[in-house]
Structures are given as C-alpha cells and as structure tokens.
Design a protein around this nucleic acid. Structure first.
Length: 425
RNA sequence: GUGGCUAUGGUGAAGUGGUCAACACGGCGGAUUGUGGCUCCGUUAUUCGAGGGUUCGAGUCCCUCUAGUCACCCCA
C-alpha cells in the first residue's frame, strides 16, 4: 500500500515528463497565437457547482465524483471537468467586464471515479478552451479549428471530426417528445440501460452500442431534422465556415454529449486506433450554463482534450520527440580536495547557465567517465593531483577525445568560446 | 458497477508439483599505475503481486483479495 499509488493514478516519470512539456509548449504557443489566455482554477470546488453545472442526473455527478467534507463541514469535490469552474471564475472575477468575448484555456488534472482502463484514469489531464460571450457560429468554428490545429501541430493524422447540433430549449423539448413517442412501444425490447435512458435522457438512446437497440432505433427522428430555425441556421453557418477553410467533418446525427449543459453545436474528435476510449476531444456550445450558475444569460462554447489519450495516439504513431538530456560538461574529481574544486566549478558553471554535473559517489575516474558518457556530456574536466597543484583541469572533448590542460579560471570562458566556434562552423 | 484474461529481479522474459528460479538487457565492479563509448570477465531475485488452503513437497493446483489489461458502461 505504501509503495503503490492509488488505483487509476499514474506517475509521470522522467522518461515521459519531457514529452508533457513538449505538448504543453505547443498548447501555450497555439493559444497565444489564437488570442486565448491561460486560466488556472483550483482543483476542488464547492460540490454544488458541479451538481448544478454538469447536471444531477449525469453519470459523472451520480457516480464518478470525488466528494469530501472539509474540516469546516463544506462539501467539496475534486473537479471532474473544468468548464463549470471556469464559468464560476468568470462570474466571480467579473471577467465579462474586461474580456469580451473571454477566450480562456487551461491545462490540468481532472478526477473521476471510474474503472481504470487504457486511456481512462481516475486522475487524468485535460487541455480545454472556453470562449464565453459570443453566440455567433464563427466562434464555434474557431474553437473547433483550434482543437484540430493542436492535433495537426503534433503531427497526428487519422482523426475524424464529428459534429452535430443538440438543439436549444426551444426545439429540444419538442424533439424529446417525438423521440419518446417513437420508442414508446419498443420500450420493453430495449436494453436495461436504454429503458432508464428513456425517461432521463432519451437522446442517449441513439448512441447505445447494443445491437438490438441500434436496430430498434432505425428510423428514429434525429434532432438535426427537428431544429428550430435559429439552431438550424447556426448549424448551417458553422458548416459553411468549415467548407470555406477546407476542414473535413462528418455530421453524426447520433452524437450527443454526456453533460447537461450543452446546446446547439456538439462535436467530438476521434482517434479510432485507441479502441474503446477513442474520443480525444469533446466539446460543444453551452449557452445556458452561465445563467444556470447565476450569471446573466451568456452564450459560450468550449472543448476539452484528454492528454493521456493524446499521448497514446502519439505513441502509436511514433510522434514523440526524442529526449535530450545531454549536458555540457561533467566534472570528474579525484580525491577529497578535488571534490571541493569540482563543487565550486559546477556551481560557477551553472551560474553562467552552462549545464554541468559531477560525481557524488566517490567513483573511480573510469566509472566517472562512463557516467559522463551516459549524460552525453560534451566535455569532461578531470581534476587530479597534478591539475589541483596547477589550478588546472584536464579538459577532454568526448567526441574527438582531444585533451588539453585549462586553467580553472578560464574554463567558463573556454566553454563559451567553444560554443561560439561551433556556431561559426 | 459487470464480465474475460493476466501477475516471476530495475526491464523483457523462461520455468508442463520435486536438485542452488534459465537467458537477454540494464546496473555495479574489474581487464596493472588517473580516462568513456567496442570487447571480455565477475557480480546482480533467501524468492516468484498479497493472504490463506491442498500436498511428504507449489512459482507451478484451489480460494480470497489487490493490481494491470481488454470489453461493457461512461467519457476526455
């Protein structure tokens, strides 16, 4: 127990943490270029926020939240997603006063009590983007294109963009009734899950993977054919933007989202080779959420990308950049006295922003050379008795094996010069 | 939450109930005096996910638990 992390969590070890930085850098750069600003909210919030924001009957809220009571008897919850929290912050800090639309993004851990499986963890990371304050389909198009550009920059191909519209408070209730009417007499033949969906969220009946249900749902009305004029117009215009920019998409009439707050545009980006957990990005418009959270009615849209899943896809396609830990110089002291000099040198070199490492295990010179090699050090500076006496080091170029005696005081400059010489070549 | 499969050292793994738990990689040490990458040599699991049981004897059979994995579900 003491030596095992909690179920569904994963350590990000040194052999992979550099790739996280790689992805994070791409995110920051992309968002900056698209005029999105980073927001960092707490990883826990009042439970109430998620109950109201995500929807009390959603799976996430019903059985996947890490909820606890703090010492002040507050019910808090580790965020299972971040849209509700961003909206909360938007309202609390009155961001509408300075940013309009507020274009925000975040990267961070989310928590859901789910059965772990490939691409599904209890603590996982999302990169998400939210644009609050604009209702025009052009911002829908921008948001979605941003997700696509993110994957493009990583070099990922074979992704499919699926879009749909889930309607609004005007057209959805009407559609819902139609749908229930359609399934009414089929109800006893549906699977158990679908029977409960019938009342709670009939739209989900359409994306059940059960064969029988699929069969029975043939011919069911699709929301997309029942949209009100406004929603229909929105959806048409969105497609127009994609066509104008040559962005491929598929209309998936059965696509619905699992969180209650979605309206109009819903979309998903899928990377099929991932298996059961193939959705790498999901998002949509949530025009009702801000009001639901106590603000003025404000339109908004956003998405979240699962970073662990993105990693799986990158690994599958061999797109992770090679790791580079190489250091400039390894200082190899021989003997106690030399260790002090080595320490001083390492300290000074690092102060000059030169990467330097030394030995801490009193290893033989031979072993130190080996370890310098493993660090892919460009140089090794050996400090033995003779060098010590003359205030010098034996500087060895690990590539050419050339050696020369260099005064300790000149070492720093020497390394800088050498870097310069290289550039001139 | 449900079902299937799996579980041996730092890693990849062999091991059909019975001598010291193969082998490979990695790590460490060495191949004469203070020098790496190649090669060679030595060394590296009182122990087989945890706990019970069957047996004269279990890594090998049974049960429980835990974890991983795949599918359902859900979603990113």
């Amino acid at each position: 127990m003491l030596t095992t992390g909690p179920r569904g969590t994963k350590d990000i070890l040194p052999d992979i943490s550099y790739s996280w930085r790689y992805i994070e850098n791409i995110i920051h750069e992309l968002c900056q270029q698209a005029a999105y600003q980073e927001i960092r909210t707490p990883i826990f919030e009042h439970t109430e926020l998620f109950l109201r924001g995500i929807g009390e009957t959603t799976d996430i809220v019903e059985k996947e939240m890490y909820t606890f009571t703090d010492l002040g008897q507050r019910s808090l919850t580790l965020r299972p997603e971040n849209t509700a929290a961003v909206v909360r912050s938007y309202l609390e800090n009155k961001l509408y006063a300075t940013l309009n639309p507020a274009k925000l993004y975040y990267i961070g851990p989310m928590f859901r009590y789910d059965r772990p499986q490939a691409g599904r963890y209890r603590q996982f990371h999302q990169f998400g983007v939210e644009a609050i304050g604009a209702k025009d389909p052009s911002i829908d198009a921008e948001i979605i294109s941003l997700a696509i550009q993110f994957f493009q920059r990583l070099g990922l191909n074979d992704l499919t963009l699926q879009i749909n519209s889930v309607g609004c408070p005007v057209c959805r209730p009407i559609y819902r009734e139609k749908l229930q009417a359609f399934f009414k007499d089929k109800l006893p033949s549906l699977c158990k899950d679908c029977q409960s969906r019938y009342e709670r969220n009939p739209m989900r009946l359409l994306d059940c993977k059960n064969e029988k249900c699929q069969e029975l749902s043939q011919g069911a009305p699709h929301i997309i054919d029942c949209l009100c004029e406004e929603c229909n117009d929105h959806f048409e215009k969105l497609q127009g933007f994609f066509k104008a920019a040559n962005i491929d998409f598929i209309i998936n009439k059965r696509l619905v989202r699992g969180l209650d707050y979605y309206t109009k545009t819903a979309f998903e980006i899928e990377y099929k080779p991932l298996g059961a957990q193939s959705a790498v990005c999901g998002g949509g418009r949530y025009d009702g959420l801000i009001e639901q959270c106590g603000g003025q009615a404000t339109p908004a849209i956003g998405f979240a990308i699962g970073l662990e899943r993105t990693f799986l896809a990158l690994e599958k396609q061999n797109l992770l950049p090679p790791k580079d830990d190489s250091i400039k110089i390894f200082i190899a002291p021989i003997g106690e006295k030399a260790k002090e000099v080595a320490f001083r040198l390492v300290y000074e070199l690092r102060s000059a922003h030169i990467s330097a490492e030394t030995d801490y295990l009193d290893r033989s010179i031979k072993a130190q050379m080996k370890s310098a090699n493993r660090y892919q050090a460009e140089y090794v500076a050996i400090i033995g008795e003779d060098e010590l006496l003359n205030n010098q080091v034996m500087l060895k170029n690990m590539k050419t094996s050339e050696q020369e005696l260099v005064s300790i005081d000149d070492l720093k400059n020497k390394l800088v010069d050498k870097a310069g010489e290289k550039k001139n070549d």
